[in-house]
Each structure stands twice: as structure tokens, then as C-alpha cells.
């Protein structure tokens, strides 16, 4: 049972603790497992540790104790492992974080060439295919500052996808967008989910959570308060705190 079980799980987080230098205990004995091709949506009030959880998954934050294993690779002190995990895990940030000195095409090409060792021609083919997928192939030669927020975020998604990751992390990917642009980004995310991408999504978009997620967790103070399907959490949560939080934001 343990063997087959561990094969199924692409992400295993076991009793992780994260304390920031300012003393904030962001994750407390945090454990979670995600299966391949699953979409997990993480919700919770700000400061609940949901972003920290995502950032720990690809080693952007150091953890104090516990273990994280992604696709069989332990995230430990070894640099090679960390780089290996980062190749397999794509991340999309709230603030896009596109490289402003590079064109859209070069933003997407760069890591393919440097990390995957592709030729410029191969990389460009992949990049253009991804730009068509996110609906803005005509912006390939544009610099990021000339794009709308929604377009920038779609480029950021294409950039992460270009590495052919096995897992995609979305850290409040639509929170910095104007309302009329949220839809276009969520549509891309829905397409990815439908194609079977493993996704961990931190979001406040409850419509998206309800429609796309396989299951959800509600976090507060660095721990999981409740987990279950969207249906269960939205209609009949076990915890009073979950009900309270959802009634506030719905």
C-alpha cells in the first residue's frame, strides 16, 4: 500500500515548519500530499501561510524542519536537487515578474535555452506554440511593459509552461489584475487543468475553485483547518471557521 501510494503522489509535504526571521510561524507541522493530474486549490485569510506553502514547494523559501518531496526528488540542501525540482515545477506569481529588459519571446525562450539546452530555433517554436495557446502570438516581439496585466500574466504562464513542468503553482495569479482581465487568465488555467496538468492554486476566485478543483484546503495560522471537495467545503463544511470564512468572501 505504501509503495503504490507514494508513486501516486507527485508532491509529499511532511510536517514542515517555517518560521520567518521576524518570528512569524508561517507553517506549523504542515503535511499534505498531491496526486498527479490533480488540481488543488488552497484558500485562507491573508497571512494564513498559503503562499509560503507554495513558495516552499520549489525552494524559494527555506524550511526549518520536515520534508518536501517533489516527483521523487527530496528538496534538501543539495543544490542539484533544488535546481532539478525547479525544472519540474513551474510557478506563476501575483506580480507576473516578467523580465522587463527582454521581449515576450525572449522571456519564454531564455530558460529553455539555458536550462533545457534547446537551440534558439527549437525554443522559439515551443514559445510561439505556447503564445498561440494563451492567445497572444502577435505580441512575441513586444516588451512586457507594453502589455496589459492580463496579457503579462498569460505570458508568465507560457514562460513557466515552456519548461514542460510536471506541476504548476499559481500564487494568487489573478489578484493583481483588473476585473475585466481576470477571465482571460482563468480561462488559460482552466484549459491547463482540463489537459491534466497537476496544479496547486492559491486563489480568492471561488468560482474557479468550485469549477476546476479536485479538492480544496482551507488554511489558517499555518495549518490546515479543513480539506475536502469544493462541494463539501462550500455547502456543508465540518468546521465552523471554514463556514465563517467562506461566508465572508462569497
Amino acid at each position: 500500500m505504501t509503495d503504490r501510494g507514494s508513486e501516486d503522489y507527485i508532491i509529499t509535504v511532511d510536517r514542515v515548519n517555517k518560521v520567518f526571521p521576524n518570528g512569524v510561524h508561517a507553517l506549523r507541522d504542515f503535511s499534505i500530499q498531491v496526486r498527479r493530474r490533480e488540481v488543488l486549490v488552497v484558500i485562507g485569510p491573508s497571512g494564513s501561510g498559503k503562499s509560503t506553502f507554495l513558495r516552499c514547494l520549489n525552494g524559494l523559501e527555506e524550511i526549518e524542519s520536515g520534508s518536501i518531496v517533489v516527483d521523487g526528488i527530496p528538496l534538501d540542501d543539495r543544490k542539484e536537487n533544488r535546481l532539478e525540482i525547479r525544472k519540474e515545477v513551474g510557478m506563476v506569481f501575483q506580480s507576473f515578474n516578467l523580465f522587463p529588459h527582454l521581449t515576450v519571446l525572449d522571456n519564454i525562450n531564455l530558460a529553455q535555452i539555458l536550462v533545457r539546452g534547446k537551440s534558439k530555433k527549437e525554443a522559439t517554436e515551443t514559445s510561439m506554440a505556447l503564445l498561440r495557446k494563451v492567445g497572444i502570438p502577435e505580441k512575441a516581439r513586444t516588451f512586457p511593459n507594453h502589455l496589459s496585466g492580463g496579457q503579462q500574466q498569460r505570458v508568465a504562464i507560457a514562460r513557466a509552461l515552456a519548461m514542460m513542468p510536471k506541476v504548476m503553482l499559481f500564487d494568487e495569479a489573478t489578484s493583481a489584475l483588473d476585473p475585466e482581465m481576470i477571465g482571460e487568465v482563468l480561462d488559460v488555467m482552466k484549459t491547463l487543468a482540463a489537459e491534466g496538468m497537476t496544479m496547486v492554486v492559491v486563489t480568492h476566485e471561488m468560482g474557479f475553485a468550485r469549477e476546476v478543483s479536485d479538492w480544496m484546503v482551507f488554511m489558517e495560522s499555518g495549518t490546515i483547518v479543513e480539506k475536502g471537495t469544493a462541494e463539501k467545503l462550500f455547502t456543508n463544511p465540518d468546521q465552523e471557521r471554514t463556514r465563517e470564512f467562506l461566508s465572508q468572501i462569497l
Binding site: 525547479r86 506580480s95 515578474n97 514562460r159 513557466a160
Partner: peptide, 27 residues
Amino acid sequence: IHKGQWEAAHSLGLSAWDSYRWIILPQ
């Protein structure tokens, strides 16, 4: 240079050297 640039570079699997060379120093 904003911390987000480092994070984006790291999350793409770029080494520290490549991040400096292609992302941080040009800016």
C-alpha cells in the same frame, strides 16, 4: 532589482550565475 526577478529566475531553474548574467546584471 526587485526580489521578484530573482524568484522568477529561480523558479525557472536558472542557476545563480545565469540569473546574474541574463536577468539581474543587464537590468
